[in-house]
Lab assay of single mutants.
Amino acid sequence: MASQGTKRSYEQMETDGERQNATEIRASVGKMIDGIGRFYIQMCTELKLSDYEGRLIQNSLTIERMVLSAFDERRNKYLEEHPSAGKDPKKTGGPIYKRVDRKWMRELVLYDKEEIRRIWRQANNGDDATAGLTHMMIWHSNLNDTTYQRTRALVRTGMDPRMCSLMQGSTLPRRSGAAGAAVKGVGTMVMELIRMIKRGINDRNFWRGENGRKTRSAYERMCNILKGKFQTAAQRAMMDQVRESRNPGNAEIEDLIFLARSALILRGSVAHKSCLPACVYGPAVASGYDFEKEGYSLVGIDPFKLLQNSQVYSLIRPNENPAHKSQLVWMACNSAAFEDLRVLSFIRGTKVSPRGKLSTRGVQIASNENMDAMESSTLELRSRYWAIRTRSGGNTNQQRASAGQISVQPAFSVQRNLPFDKPTIMAAFTGNTEGRTSDMRAEIIRMMEGAKPEEMSFQGRGVFELSDERAANPIVPSFDMSNEGSYFFGDNAEEYDN
């Protein structure tokens, strides 16, 4: 993207840094990872977990959730003011799984939030270390993106479920800051804005008074975040219109849905970061690795190297396929839920299948599930090659597409044709070009129609051997075009429920 120079890199967003050079960025990201790792080690000690239990991804998720809940100030305040039966607002906890007599047992633990905050700050040299908290939120978000298709949420806001490739980060909490905003897809931002506008339509006082002023500035800020994701002048001009509207209503909703559809071809720039579970960072720190000293990046080879040398386990339900569970977590670790499966298959070195073909449910185990038949197995999170994460949407291309997802959002900077089903997408653009945004709409449609099938995206960008740390010898991959490109292809993934 041309304006790259004016933006802070995501590592800076990730670490609240002012302008830093590459070495400083690597050190501050490393410091953040160190903090998460030290916190995780301490929690495993508190909970008396064995090494194996500490490497269980379900335990990692519970521990991450506990610290996120302990620092969720708004919710904590709300819980104190609106006490609900049987919930102690000062405590947080969740299921911890232990191996007892050759069987997995679930144990519900409860801790004072104050105590968890103390352990977290102690692991982070006394700081609140917001960057580390956001990092864990993005890992949870990436896992949700890989596990669930947001059909219901899309339909509720009037969008087409086939636009799911635009929904990265749709389950990120509001408090995820600049680093969170960077990884949100165009569809996620559109959905947040539509929800806001709908509230304004239904509630006369939404934009009024002292609160209304705050609401208005939040609305304009979200519009600017979305505008910054678009790469064409016409899309940005249309966002200006939406932002400046005196009284946002149905016309703005129409414009936003139009823009979301246009992003299936004229893709937005959305950041991709490899955020790993805390149970990967903990053992690495415990083994003596100093992330701050060595430096770390979320968008280069580092996460690949770390996963190459990590042992992570997962509980497996009786009829689940461990290899499929591994694929789910591998995609989440690489922030690749909406990437082209052919690119992923090449990088991973084994075939990556669409969601609907995987015999696996989510990673988390519900409290009512029976533990008797639970097994555990090693997650295979290694890769054959590594590639640089991208934040450009890439230019655009036609490809055989599917009944489910009709476009992709690249996660890796790797040369390819970008699949999208042009006739299906263009069919949504018939007729409606009147109104105050008509010239911009016409211009956007013209650009979409001009998108050429034979153009290559990320020209000359390749993948790298894991021994090639400096990215000196790019390998331009070859793809098996007979395979499906979309992950949520004609899909039956479970729906995400809060």
Rank of each mutant, 00 (worst) to 15 (best):
M1I: 04
S3P: 08
T6C: 11
K7D: 11
R8A: 11
S9Y: 02
Y10I: 02
Q12L: 01
Q12M: 01
Q12N: 01
M13I: 06
E14G: 08
T15R: 09
R19Y: 13
Q20D: 09
A22T: 15
I25M: 01
I25D: 15
R26S: 04
R26N: 09
S28Q: 02
V29P: 09
G30C: 07
K31Q: 05
D34E: 02
D34L: 05
G35A: 04
I36G: 13
I36F: 14
G37T: 12
Q42P: 05
C44R: 08
C44T: 15
L47T: 15
K48N: 08
L49F: 09
L49V: 00
S50T: 03
Y52T: 12
E53M: 12
G54A: 02
R55K: 03
L56W: 06
I57L: 15
I57R: 00
I57F: 15
L61F: 06
I63L: 01
E64G: 14
M66G: 06
L68H: 15
L68T: 00
S69A: 05
A70T: 14
F71Q: 14
R74I: 04
R75K: 13
Y78S: 08
L79C: 02
E81H: 00
P83D: 04
S84P: 15
G86I: 13
K90E: 03
K90A: 04
T92Q: 08
G94W: 10
P95K: 07
P95Q: 07
K98D: 15
K98T: 00
R99I: 02
R99A: 14
R99P: 03
R102G: 15
K103I: 14
K103F: 13
K103P: 04
W104Y: 02
L108M: 15
L108C: 13
L110V: 03
L110K: 03
Y111V: 00
D112Q: 03
K113A: 10
K113P: 01
I119W: 06
I119M: 01
R121W: 00
R121E: 09
Q122P: 07
A123S: 00
A123D: 12
N124R: 04
N124D: 14
N125S: 05
G126R: 05
D127N: 05
D127V: 13
D128L: 01
A129I: 00
L133M: 04
T134I: 04
T134K: 13
T134D: 07
M136C: 03
I138D: 09
H140Y: 13
S141C: 14
D145V: 13
T147D: 10
T147R: 04
Y148S: 01
Y148F: 05
R150M: 05
T151W: 10
T157V: 14
T157Y: 02
G158E: 10
M159N: 08
M159E: 08
P161F: 04
R162S: 14
C164S: 04
C164E: 06
C164K: 02
S165K: 05
S165A: 15
M167G: 03
M167A: 01
Q168M: 04
S170H: 14
T171N: 04
R174I: 14
R174M: 02
A179G: 04
A181L: 02
V183R: 04
V186A: 04
G187L: 04
L193H: 06
K198C: 10
R199K: 13
N202A: 00
D203I: 07
D203E: 08
N205P: 04
W207D: 10
W207Q: 07
G209D: 14
E210H: 12
N211H: 09
A218P: 12
A218Q: 09
A218H: 09
E220F: 11
M222A: 01
I225C: 15
I225H: 00
L226T: 11
K227W: 11
K229F: 11
K229L: 12
F230L: 08
T232M: 10
A234L: 09
A234E: 04
Q235M: 08
M238F: 06
V242W: 07
R243L: 01
S245R: 06
R246P: 01
R246A: 13
N247I: 08
N247E: 09
P248Q: 13
N250M: 08
A251Q: 10
E252W: 11
E252H: 11
E254W: 12
D255Y: 08
A260Y: 10
R261G: 06
S262M: 10
L264V: 12
L264R: 07
L266Y: 09
R267N: 13
R267G: 15
S269V: 07
S269I: 07
V270I: 05
H272K: 09
S274C: 09
C275Q: 10
C275K: 10
C275R: 13
L276Q: 14
L276V: 13
P277R: 13
A278H: 09
C279S: 12
Y281N: 03
P283R: 01
P283K: 00
A284N: 09
A284Q: 07
A284H: 13
D290L: 06
F291A: 12
E292A: 00
K293H: 14
G295Q: 10
G295I: 10
D302Y: 03
D302W: 05
P303K: 09
Q308T: 04
Q308I: 01
N309E: 13
S310Q: 01
Y313V: 05
S314L: 14
I316F: 14
I316Q: 10
P318Q: 06
N319G: 14
P322G: 03
A323D: 14
A323G: 04
H324W: 06
H324F: 10
K325V: 11
L328D: 07
V329W: 10
M331K: 14
M331P: 01
M331Y: 05
A332Y: 07
N334R: 10
S335V: 10
A337I: 11
L341I: 09
L344T: 04
S345C: 12
S345L: 02
F346I: 15
F346A: 01
I347V: 05
R348L: 06
G349S: 02
V352G: 08
S353A: 01
P354W: 13
R355Q: 10
R355E: 07
R355W: 14
G356C: 08
S359E: 00
R361F: 08
Q364S: 15
A366I: 07
N368H: 13
N370D: 09
M371F: 07
D372A: 06
A373E: 01
E375G: 08
S376T: 03
E380M: 10
L381E: 10
R384S: 03
Y385F: 14
R389M: 11
T390N: 01
R391Y: 06
R391F: 08
S392T: 03
G393S: 04
G393L: 04
T396N: 02
Q398G: 01
Q399A: 04
A401G: 14
S402T: 05
A403E: 03
A403R: 08
G404I: 14
G404C: 12
Q405I: 10
Q405A: 02
V408M: 00
Q409G: 00
Q409I: 02
P410K: 10
P410N: 10
F412T: 12
V414R: 04
N417Q: 02
L418G: 08
P419H: 03
P423D: 00
T424F: 01
T424E: 04
M426R: 01
M426C: 00
A428G: 02
N432E: 01
N432T: 01
T433A: 12
E434M: 00
G435T: 08
G435R: 09
R436V: 13
T437N: 14
T437I: 15
T437S: 01
S438Y: 01
M440C: 15
I444L: 14
I444W: 07
I445W: 07
I445G: 09
I445F: 07
I445E: 05
M447G: 09
M448K: 13
M448R: 00
M448Y: 12
K452Y: 01
P453W: 06
M456Q: 05
F458D: 10
F458A: 10
Q459G: 00
Q459F: 01
R461Y: 12
F464W: 09
E465S: 10
L466F: 14
L466V: 05
L466E: 00
S467I: 15
E469L: 05
A472R: 08
N473L: 01
V476P: 04
V476T: 01
V476R: 09
P477A: 06
S478H: 08
F479T: 14
D480S: 01
D480K: 15
S482F: 10
N483D: 15
N492T: 02
Y496G: 00
D497Q: 00
D497W: 15
N498W: 13
